[in-house]
Simulated assay, not measured.
Amino acid sequence: VLPTADSKEEAAAEGEEQEEQAEAVEEPVRSQTVLVEQVPPAVAPPQVEEKREKRPLIFTHSVHAGETLWDIAQAYGITVDTILSANDLRDPNRIRVGQNLRIPSVKGVLHRVSTGESLWEIADRYKISIDEIAEANSIKDPGRIKPNDEIVIPGATRLMPRDVLLVNGQLQRAFDWPVKGRISSPFGPRWGRMHNGLDIAVGTGTSVRAAADGRVTFAGWNGGYGYLVILDHGNGIETRYAHNSRLNVKVGQRVDRGQVICFSGNTGVSTGPHLHFEIRYRNKPVNPQTYLR
């Protein structure tokens, strides 16, 4: 049977409808495929652990016009004494515009470690626990501090270095022996009069060393003392070195602890080669053996 015109039209219409349905089914698939290719899936950002930097132990502050140490101390939440000790300042009123000041991040003083000094010794001197010092300075091993390390002593109000000679008006056992030898005559009454120093028997020409840092205020001949050196250590403290054969310093010169300042001898009123050594506080002689270490 041959198809009629009406049946052909119906078949064509049915075919078109099937094609439209097929396209309608395929279109979402093609669209979804293209979307996946063009926009890759979002990748979660890597989880990075936040690292908090520790607050610096020492800040640097440049002095501005009109600023005082009190202003600066208040701004940083510390004391004026903390700033004075950290910068070796003696007069809180003498700072200048543009001057860089070291500012510890905690209230306390900045202590420089001396040769041979331990954290236990430092803690004992400042009357503070080792743990407090270690925590304030992030010190993991208290036994591994080195000379010239700078550490903050939290809560301290004044600097107490190892070589401090005077604390609260009291002389300290902080003087080095100027020479090593036998004590031939101690401090005290002798031959009906006061012997103001310590006689140490050593051969002529023995190096005599400064008992502490100081400034030379006398270097020359002085009657019964013979050739004499006098050192001023500040705060009314001086040391005297007498009967020398030769001098190695001049008046006004700054000397360091342990520096050779003269050579022993037998000059002046002397019964034999030796060094006569004195410590005086406010011009009053004291027993050197009490303060030599």
Rank of each mutant, 00 (worst) to 15 (best):
D6R: 15
A11P: 03
A12Y: 14
E14T: 11
Q18T: 11
Q18F: 13
Q32I: 11
T33E: 14
V34I: 13
Q38F: 12
E49T: 11
T60V: 14
A65S: 15
T68K: 07
L69E: 00
D71H: 12
I78S: 06
D81P: 07
T82H: 02
I83R: 00
N87W: 01
D88N: 15
N93T: 08
G98R: 00
Q99A: 02
N100Q: 11
L101V: 01
I103E: 03
V106K: 11
G108T: 00
G108S: 01
H111G: 00
T115G: 11
E117A: 03
E117P: 03
S118D: 08
S118W: 05
R125L: 08
R125E: 08
D131F: 09
E132C: 04
A134Y: 02
I139M: 02
R144N: 15
P147H: 05
E150G: 03
I151N: 00
I153A: 02
G155I: 03
G155F: 05
T157D: 14
R158T: 10
L159F: 08
N168L: 09
L171F: 08
R173W: 08
D176C: 10
P178L: 04
V179D: 03
G181E: 08
G181V: 06
S184G: 15
F187H: 04
P189R: 14
N196M: 09
A201N: 12
V202F: 09
A210N: 00
A211V: 03
T217H: 09
A219H: 05
W221S: 12
G223Q: 14
G224C: 07
I230D: 04
L231Y: 01
L231G: 00
H233T: 02
G234H: 05
G234A: 06
E238I: 08
E238K: 12
R240K: 10
Y241K: 02
V249Q: 07
K250Q: 13
V260S: 04
C262N: 07
F263T: 02
F263D: 03
S264C: 05
S264Q: 04
S264R: 00
G265S: 03
T271D: 14
P273G: 07
L275D: 01
H276F: 04
E278Q: 06
E278P: 01
I279A: 01
L292V: 09
L292T: 07
